[in-house]
Each structure stands twice: as C-alpha cells, then as structure tokens.
Design a protein around this nucleic acid. Sequence first.
RNA 1: CGGGGUGUAGCGCAGCUGGUAGCGCACGUGGUUUGGGACCAUGGGGCCGGGGGUUCAAGUCCUCUCACCCCGACCA
Length: 565
Amino acid sequence: MLIRNLLGERMKEKPGDASLISHIYLLRGGYIRQVSNGIYSMLLPAKRVASKIENIIREEMDAIGGQEVLFPVVLPADLLKESGRYDSIGSELVRFQDRTGHDMVLGMTHEEAAVHLARNEALSYTKYPFMIYQIQTKFRDEPRSRGGLIRVREFTMKDAYSFHTSHDELKEYYDRVLEAYHRIFERVGLSQVISVRSDSGMMGGDVAHEFMLLTNAGEDTIVLCEKCGYKANMEVAVSNVPCSTDKEQPLEEVYTPDIKDIDSLAAYLNIPASKTMKATVFSVENSSRPLIVFIRGDLQVNEAKLRKVVKSDIAPFTAYDATDLNFGFIGAVGLDKNKVDVLFDSSLRGENNTVCGANKVNYHLKGVSISRDIKDAVFVDVAKVNENDLCIHCGGKLSLRRGIEVGNIFQLGTKYTESMNMTYIDKDGERKHPVMGCYGIGVGRLIGCIIEAHHDDFGPIWPKTVAPWQIHICMLNGNIEEVNKAGQGLYDKLGRKFEVIFDDRNAAAGIQFADADLLGVPVRIIVSKRNVEKGEVEIVTRDKKTKMAVPIDHVESRVKELLSE
RNA sequence: CGGGGUGUAGCGCAGCUGGUAGCGCACGUGGUUUGGGACCAUGGGGCCGGGGGUUCAAGUCCUCUCACCCCGACCA
C-alpha cells in the first residue's frame, strides 16, 4: 500500500469532540470517521486491524469445535415474541415494519436466531454438544453511546451459542470457552484482561462472567480483592460490613429540627453515620406501593442488586405528592405495611442502638434495635461495595477499579430452548430441552481497548498480531535517484513476504514520522540519502526500543527476526 | 430521560456594543528545501447547523428546532 493513495488524512490537531485517547488516535490516524452518534465508518487501517482480530477469534473458536455460521441482521419480531424478549427489551431494540406491515427488528444479539436454526437441525442427542458462532453486525440503540469505538450503537460482534444435553456438560464447555477467551485477549495484546463474575442482566441464566480491561477509560466498576483474588462487577459484588457491638438501649424520640439527611443527622447527634439508618424510597414497576429500603447510614443502595431482588424494574421514588411519607424522617418503626413495602439491607442485621426517622416531621428515634423493635424484617443484600470493605471470602481489603467490558459469557440454561420449544430426542427416547450457553466479544471495542492499553504520546503502538501492516517504509529524499531505487526495491522485495505500507511521498521527515507513529506499525524502515550512501537503511521499532543501521542486503532477515520476537 | 457544553472552509479556531466572513493547518500550482509536522509566491474552497422573527441591515439580537460532545440515569 502506498501512503499517497491511502484514504484517511492524518491530523495534527486533536478533533474537538474526542476525549478518550483511543478515540483521538482513531480519528487523528485516519482509522474511523463518524457517520452519526455511535455509528462509524472504518477506513483501511482500522478495517485491517479488525480483520486480524476477527481471524484470531475465529481460530480460537474453531479450536474449541465452533462452527461458523451467519445469522441475518434483520429478524422477524415473531422470533423475539417467542422468547418473550420483544416485550421485555426496551427501546434499544430497533423495531420497524417491512413493506407488508410485518414487525421486524435489527438483531442486537442472536439467541433467537441460533435457536431457530438449531432446533430444526439438532433433533437427536447424537449431534450434541455443538457450538455455532458468527462474526456479525449488531445494532443496539444505546441511550448513550460515547468514547469512539468503546461504546457504539452499531458494531461487529462475535457471538457464539453452545447447546448441551446436561448442565454439567455446559459447565465443562463454559470453562473451555473461558480459557479460549483468555487466549484470544492474550493474542490480541491484552493479556491483562481479567474475568469477573457478573450480572446476567437481560440474558437470563445463572452463571455469567465478564472480561474486563482495567483502565481509567472504563465505564464499569470492578471490585477486586488483592489478597484472595476475588473479583466481581459492582453490580453483583458483595462485601462484609461488620456489625456494631453496641448494647441495646431504650427507644427515645429526639427533636431534630429540619435535619433531613444522614450527614446532618450524624453531625447533629454527634454519632458516626454508620450508627444511623437511611431510608431509600423506590417506585417499583407494576406496583402502586412505594418500596422503602433501609440501609446503614454510611452505605448506598446498589440499584442493580435491588432490581434483582425484587425481580422487576425500580426507580428512585419521585411521586412525593402521592404519599403521606415524611421524607427526611422516614423510619423503620411503626410503618404501615399496608401502604408500603419494606426491605432491610443485611448491613442492619443485628444492629443495636441506631437512629432512624420517627415518621414524624422534625423527629428521629434513638436507640433502635432491629431485632427488638422491628418484627418480621426481611433482610436482603443490596448494598454498594465501597473501597476498603472487607472481602467476604478472606477478609482482605477490597479495592475498586474502572474497567471496559470486552467480552462476556453466560450459562443460559434452558431459558430460550424452553420458551422457543427446542427439543431433541435423548438416549432414553425422551424429548428434552437442551441446555444453552452464549458467548460474546466486541471486535470494534477491542480495537479501542488495544489503543487504550498500547500507545505513547505520538499514537497507537499496535501489537504485532493485530497491526494494520507489519512494515512501514519511510523514504526520505525520494527525489534522489539512488534513494528512490533503494526504497522501491525494498518495497517490492519485502512486499512479497510481508504486509508493507510505503511512504514515497516527497514529504518532510517530520510529516512522515508523525504519520508513521499514528499508523503504529511495529517495524519501520527509514530509507534516506545519508543511509543509502553507506549501503544501509535504518530499522526502528514503533515502541522506540530498537534502532539500528542495517546493510540493505540484510534487511529482510533482520525484519523477520524483529517480527518473530 | 435529566444536567452541562458546542455548532462559522476537510481539521482546529477567531469574529466585541448588528454594517459586504477571517486566521492557522490541510488542499491545488510554481519554486527553494529535506532526519521529527519547513519556507516563499500564488490559487481554490462558506446556505456562519436549520426554520421563523426583530431590523434599512443578522454569523452577531429574539424564538423554535436539529445535530454532536461530556456527566448522570440506562445497558451483554
């Protein structure tokens, strides 16, 4: 490839609407151009990186017995109605009608298509287990896309679906996929990706892992225990909060004028926030009664966990006029259970001598003991984990880190095979529902993540396995005949064995080098007057760790060495 | 969906209390240069996001709208 013909102008200045480093370099390097919010065109360099990533994924999927298939982008709504997701998924699912008025959707994930295909092809246990996968465009109308390729609406994803005749077999295969995923991330240069337990969200199912790249550019919060290795997404993370050892005290109503939040309450009574009880009020979908969650004053409610507990959607309560609750003074003692639902976070279990609202404006209750004063308390774990909380497995201190999700795997069970009535005839002649797993990796997001993990002040430093080209030839002084001959000669020769991009423009060295840095190709060969005069060229690596003068005749073998290191 | 911000040349920006739209980079041409974004000369490029209004006159003021970015809600 000649740079002079390469479409995608490299830019000196940072584009105004990019803030993530990967986004900036993808734009400045001429990799991508935005078409709409969360929708991008890819130019050749990005397309080449994407293809390399896809090929690595393909090899690893094939190595664990995957069969590559291709599902359609457009699916009939009927298919999603079978599984129930046509109604359960929100507005991120693009719905439309075709010419004849049939409801259609754009595929955002392909469980239904996979079951639709497999249920007519895998009628006997003898076909099992099997895994089918595709590398395909997905569309999700994200409420908030951002960060270049990190979070988009249209993207390429590898999604895989495995089918099994038992849960044990699924678990075994799930572990194989987990290992294959770690190999994939290692091969694309992201060996630091970790797998964490995660919420199965809209996918349903029990066990799920996310693969996270830890980086400040991340949008998820990960809880880690340095001591025992416990790691989980914030959405499901648990921690130990030690209960206080206070003795029981008599109940006492105290006057707390205009004290409506925990901080001022703690300050007013001169007690730590952990010795108070916070009332957090939610409205629950399909329920007319407010849900009050009591939690220790220094903790926060994790809405994702709460959502799981109540098994429906929840939102902070805002219909203040529709209730006679005394906001700011809501307490656990004496609430009318016919008007509200009440839950207690497990942080309050066994708590003595704490303070909560008195359900009366300007009054709180002191000396509350949960076991004594509150009958039939229902305890659930809905607290957000905080930095330095204690690990529930080993007692070590937990830390919080930001991460980007680059892949995920789920043990789905029979959610889809039952709802979509997929069966096979087992050995014993019985008709049974297969057990299913599904496994995803975002290709475009990986491109962004690789840059987040591998760059310097000048541009991306692509790992050799995914670099858009292997060799970048900069020809300075190309107007001099001998130099031009040497440059062209190398390009022709190396081009037979390697992927080479050649800068034969009559551009200043600074321009050529800056462009080369932005393209991030691992091995750079500089052909110039002062080298060629000595019968040499200079070879440098993009990471700037290697720099050497090499006789022109030896270039090929040196390059080969560098690329195989 | 809430909060904040920005829309002027391909990119980055300036344009004040209204008076014929500018700068840098990039691009074309000619020349001088040539190891980290060179220099001289010259040229092309604009529905000032869009509609409506105020005014003799609107990039500028008012109003509605659209798009994009960031934060939050949400989210394989």
